[in-house]
Nucleic acid binder design. Structure first.
Lengths: 345, 345
DNA sequence: TTGTATGCGTTATCAA
DNA sequence: TTGATAACGCATACAA
């Protein structure tokens, strides 16, 4: 591979002139500029990014750290962000933490050591230690999806309270009273927010929250299936389930199918986040969807601003995306028999 | 950040001694080794990967280039590969080519310029120019999924001919005669292989291949839906559809649902590749699945070998994964009326 | 407008 | 066993 020295030799100028000419970072006479250009072209020269990075102290790499790379939500986010970033000459390094805080930390340390220009992080930990650690990261950082309270960095996420509140209200208005919430990973920010939206809506409609009907499915399909099973086999089973994410909703739906319970005739179901291939799943599930595209665009936008204006200090920003309701056929009034029973008591 | 010089100063030795002590790349007396270690620890020193890479001529980065990062097949592949690679101290840079050959080429050039240690590529082009270009890439390269004929590099993929042959045979044995093939992107290796498996099986069972029943859905869900529609509204519609991938099968299923056509009572359906959330889709689709895990493991294994034994020349290897059949409820004998009609003619 | 020289942080060669 | 020094390839402050 040709180096800057080869170009200098061929153009009969010094290396600094080549650098100035090619980067436009200084005054170069048109004639030498052309000579340099031609020499560079003839040799197929392009600067070694490694040497540039060593000099500059940072690479043109962006780190993206999420819990699970294969999760369709993050896969889509990666897709959108990567396209945007590559157009700005930035490459994306992805790593999955598996939801493990230590692993998350180790990955971030590796990325910082690699001198990445910025990090997009969906953090799975908000312990004081993790906050301290993240605070110590001097690389531009944007948090997505999961907010870490007490950490003053850019955040892009959706209104999780609103999302579950919307869905809860829908089933309440249909006449449901025994409503279950299939929650996410306990302690995780989004999971707690969604739980809160469920609880507050129940209360504001004068319904009592049965804590036994709030089960965590860990945002996982299999766990969602198991927990839904547990709910559905109860003699006093709920007549509606508000699932905190898409894959748990699918797990719940599968549990119903396996038990011969009809949706929505017997039990209604709602979900947060779009369901992959939701259109071919019967019944179509009523859900509160957050725009992944908007999330990805916003997060990369924040990051690019910080990278390009590293000199000016920008106050941490927050972009909360409002979920939109997509109505399916998975919700109906509670079955007569049950409703009668409840009304009677 | 502490540099090697800081460590040298603190341990009162030269930088070369620090390098030797820390890397174990030369003879160092136990006492100085300990002093260096302690100094390094006290300063929280770790070598700057950028400087190491500049010296070594290559980074500890692996490039992964696929058509679509959000495609569940590739997302899963990325997930598995990334975990394996990070355990070997390698980070993964991902980029989506969008199936565009020029973009694919540009991405690979960027990765090579970045001095990545290796590239995992699912190429969407096998033109002579692309082959020449890929041949010129001096970085360890492993092809996955799509084989590029005439390029002597490691390849990991599945037996695509067998996959579609299996599915075609299943519907033939159920008595179907008018069988459609919802094919992938014309010209793409896997798509052509799958088409071939369909054709040869039809022929070997003495059935005529109606070219009008082979439609390309471009491996895309929407296109698959449209093409399935086209097939299903025909008065002489096929009684079975063999889809060349999962998302097109889902598109076809959706088309059937929208048209009020029952699956499998009216039309049978099969698919290559696992369907995401296939368990909650009614009916469960009969499919030939390839193990993405095996593919990812094998590909990273090949790559790691080449990277770790860059000195010895290894002949290009091929790992063909045998798809396994997963039987669902999407296949049944053709409807009586139609069968009678056909038998009569 | 152009050239010289230095540093970015390592590793490796060669002396000592 | 240890140390001085030259690369790796580039950018830039300073000189000319």
């Amino acid at each position: 591979m040709a180096t800057i020295r080869d170009v200098a030799k061929r153009a009969k100028v010094s290396v600094s002139t080549v650098s100035l000419a090619l980067n436009g970072s200084g005054p170069v006479s048109p004639s030498t500029r052309r000579r340099v250009w031609e020499a560079a072209n003839a040799l197929g020269y392009s600067a070694n990014p490694l040497a540039q990075s060593l000099k500059a102290g940072r690479t043109r790499l962006i780190g993206m750290v999420v819990g699970d790379v294969a999760n369709p939500f993050f896969a889509r986010m990666l897709q959108v962000a990567e396209q945007l970033l590559i157009d700005h000459g930035l490459l994306v390094v992805v790593a999955g933490s598996g939801g493990n805080p230590e692993r998350e930390r180790a990955i971030i340390e590796t990325l910082v050591a690699q001198r990445v220009s910025g990090i997009i992080l969906s953090s799975h930990s908000s312990t004081p230690e993790q906050i301290d650690f993240l605070r110590s990261v001097k690389v531009p950082l944007v948090l997505v999806d999961h907010k870490v309270e007490g950490l003053d960095v850019d955040f892009v996420g959706s209104d999780n309270v609103l999302a579950s509140a919307m869905l809860t209200e829908i089933v309440i208005r249909l006449g449901h009273k025994r409503i279950a919430h299939l929650a996410g990973v306990n302690g995780l920010w989004t999971a707690e927010q969604r739980k809160q939206g469920f609880r507050s809506t129940m209360t504001s409609f004068g319904l009592e929250v049965d804590e036994g009907l709030i089960l965590s499915g860990d945002y996982d399909g299999e766990r969602g299936y198991a927990q839904a099973m547990r709910l559905l086999v109860r003699p006093d089973r709920p007549t509606a389930i508000v699932a905190a994410n898409n894959v748990m909703a699918l797990g719940a739906l599968q549990a119903m199918i396996d038990l011969g319970i009809r949706c929505p005739a017997d039990v209604s179901l709602t979900s947060i986040d779009d369901v992959p291939w939701g259109k071919v799943i019967q019944p179509r599930i009523t859900m509160a969807v957050q725009s992944v595209e908007e999330l990805a665009r916003s997060a990369t936008g924040f990051l690019l601003e910080r990278i390009n204006h590293a000199d000016v200090s920008i106050a941490p920003r927050e972009h909360i995306i409002i979920p939109s309701l997509v109505t399916g056929q998975s919700c109906a009034p509670p079955p007569r028999t049950l409703r009668a029973l409840h009304d009677a008591k």
